[in-house]
Design a protein around this nucleic acid. Structure first.
Lengths: 210, 210
DNA sequence: TTGGTAAATTAACAGTGTTAAGTATTTTTA
DNA sequence: TAAAAATACTTAACACTGTTAATTTACCAA
């Protein structure tokens, strides 16, 4: 059935066109200004055609949220080559902050916007696997650090939540303009790194405790 | 000018009616489902009348964001009676988490939504004074704790940002449904408290360091 | 060539925030 | 008290939004 295959491929191509157009719009104008009609305009189809490939606007956001996680994984490709788990932990946090600040619109969809979660809830197996595996990776890394005595022993889940909470908190406050006066724009990223380093420093056993 | 005064009072009364109606709608239906027409319906005026009292929808959100801070201050009324600054710090963090989880729609407007910040930017003296004084209070408290040797000495700004970042991160992840699978709903608040306590515990000098 | 299917479009609905123009109502002035 | 002016409010409309139903166009098998 070569013909059916080709048709399927065409279908996937158009889906990709729609997502590419949405991605471009998000980067250029922010997700708040994305409309189905603008997406359709960009791919030179009528607005309703988009609905033949995606159930609704939220489903497009869901796929963009997936693409965001892909981008994030790419940024973390430099992690495995760091042999020291503690150093890897530091780098992981830095990467997270950098990704968020360099891809604010993507970060917004991945961790702030409601839209993708609404779609997940409608799905058959409704779990946020992408997010859960990400936090799982952090937990494993913490576990490794504890086992090797590099950081203080503590409940892994609580520490992971604390770290994730902190980096997410900083990035999301910045993205949503709650740090405009508090920290000058050009110092934002370095200040966040400082806060993260401070936190990790307090549990880092390589610092002498008094 | 008793008459001008009365007119002014009437004007303020209607403004209050509009804000009360918006507040009710936000609590009942969430801010995503608030519309100018629904607000107008609730106060039994025509939709355009609302615009005679508020410049636009964002300005209403801005005032709701102010009311949110008021609510938050009320929740913190129990702080001054705690004489030990370190205990006050613990309680302040707990209050923050409790406020956010108990007033999710308000928290959203105060710390997540873009709308009130957009209004602030259009204002004459465009600074987020409410947020900045709140973080200022945290900084002062940390300063006091450090001076009295209750917590480890460190740059106040960085520590304040780390703490605020963490509690905000946890609350906002929960509100925006990123913790649905990770933590059972009924354990959310206690888990957050645990994370906060863990963080404060690491800088708390009253814990013996090995 | 015909019939049927898939793909895309047009038209429309019900809703949104917001503005301009017009109508009551109230207050001020003569 | 009557006319004029200012205030308060509403109606109608604009330019959008996401989305659906009905219709047309394009393609492929018999």
């Amino acid at each position: 059935m070569g013909i059916a295959e080709r048709k399927e491929k065409q279908k996937q191509d158009i889906k990709k066109m729609i997502l590419d157009a949405s991605m471009k719009l998000i980067i250029d104008e922010g997700f708040e200004n994305i409309t189905m009609r603008k997406i359709a305009d960009l791919i030179e189809y009528s607005p309703t055609t988009v609905y033949l490939y995606f159930k609704d606007k939220d489903e497009i956001f869901f796929h963009l949220h997936e693409l965001g996680f892909q981008k994030m994984l790419e940024m973390n490709r430099n992690l495995p080559e760091i042999k020291n788990p503690l150093m890897r932990l530091y780098k992981m946090g830095e990467n997270y902050i950098n990704f968020g600040m360099q891809n604010q619109e993507f970060y917004d969809i991945m961790f702030i916007q409601q839209a993708p979660m609404d779609t997940i809830e409608k799905m058959a197996e409704c779990n946020w696997s992408l997010g859960d595996t990400a936090i799982g990776a952090l937990q494993n890394l913490l576990q490794e650090c504890m086992e090797k005595g590099l950081i203080q022993k503590a409940p892994v889940e609580a520490v992971a939540m604390a770290i994730w909470g902190m980096v997410h908190g900083l990035v999301s406050l910045a993205i949503r303009n709650r740090m405009n006066k508090l920290v000058p724009k050009e110092n934002l990223v370095s200040t966040m790194h400082a806060s993260l380093n401070w936190l990790l420093g307090t549990i880092d056993n390589s610092f002498a405790k008094e």
